[in-house]
C-alpha cells in the first residue's frame, strides 16, 4: 500500500527541484536553443531560396549567351555569304567586261582589216588597172591603134583578173 502513497517530504523536494528546473531550463536553455534552431531553419530556407534564384538566373544567363552566340553565328554566316556573292559578282563582272572588251577589240580589228582590205583591193585594182593599162599601152601601142579598143580590152582583162 505504501508503494502507492505519495510521500510528503519527497513531494516537497520534487516540487522545489522541478519548478526550479522548469524555470532555469526555460530561461537559459530551451528558449535560446529553440531560437537558434528557428534562426538556423530560417537561414537554411533563405539560403535554399537564394540558391534556387541564382540557379534560375544562371539558366537565364546561359540562355541569353546561347541566344547571343546564335545571333553572332547567323550574322557571320550572312556576312560570309554576302562577301562571297559580292566577290563572285565582281569576278563575273570583270570576266564579262573583259570578254566584251576583247570582242570589241576583235570587232574593231575586223572592221579595220576589212576596210584596209577593201582599200587595198581598190588600190590594187586601180594600180592593177593602171599597170595593166600601162602594160597594155605598152603592149597594145604596138598592136592597137585606137584608144577605144585598147580601153575595152583592158577592162575586160581587169575583170578577168580574180583577186580573190
Amino acid at each position: 500500500m505504501d508503494l502507492i502513497t505519495p510521500d510528503l517530504g519527497l513531494l516537497f523536494w520534487t516540487g522545489l527541484v522541478f519548478v526550479l528546473l522548469l524555470f532555469l531550463l526555460t530561461k537559459f536553455a530551451w528558449k535560446p536553443i529553440l531560437n537558434m534552431v528557428n534562426t538556423r531553419e530560417q537561414k537554411i530556407t533563405e539560403a535554399l531560396e537564394l540558391a534556387e534564384k541564382t540557379k534560375a538566373e544562371m539558366q537565364q544567363l546561359a540562355a541569353q549567351n546561347e541566344e547571343l552566340l546564335k545571333e553572332a553565328r547567323a550574322t557571320r554566316d550572312t556576312m560570309i555569304k554576302e562577301a562571297k556573292s559580292t566577290a563572285d559578282k565582281m569576278v563575273e563582272d570583270a570576266k564579262s567586261k573583259a570578254k566584251e572588251e576583247a570582242e570589241k577589240v576583235i570587232e574593231n580589228a575586223r572592221v579595220s582589216i576589212n576596210a584596209e582590205k577593201v582599200a587595198a583591193v581598190a588600190e590594187l585594182k586601180a594600180q592593177m588597172a593602171a599597170f595593166s593599162i600601162e602594160i597594155a599601152e605598152k603592149v597594145v601601142r604596138e598592136n592597137l591603134s585606137s584608144d577605144e579598143k585598147q580601153k575595152t580590152l583592158a577592162d575586160k582583162l581587169v575583170g578577168e583578173i580574180n583577186l580573190n
Binding site: D7, G9, L10, W13, V17, F18, L20, L21, A29, I33
Partner: peptide, 26 residues
C-alpha cells in the same frame, strides 16, 4: 520528514544531468 532520501538524491542528479546537457547545448 523532509529527509534527503535516495530519490531526492537521484532527483538532484537527474536535474543536474538535464541542466548540464541543456546548458551545454545552449
Amino acid at each position: 520528514s523532509l529527509s534527503m532520501t535516495k530519490n531526492v538524491i537521484v532527483l538532484l542528479i537527474v536535474a543536474l544531468l538535464v541542466c548540464w546537457f541543456a546548458f551545454s547545448t545552449a
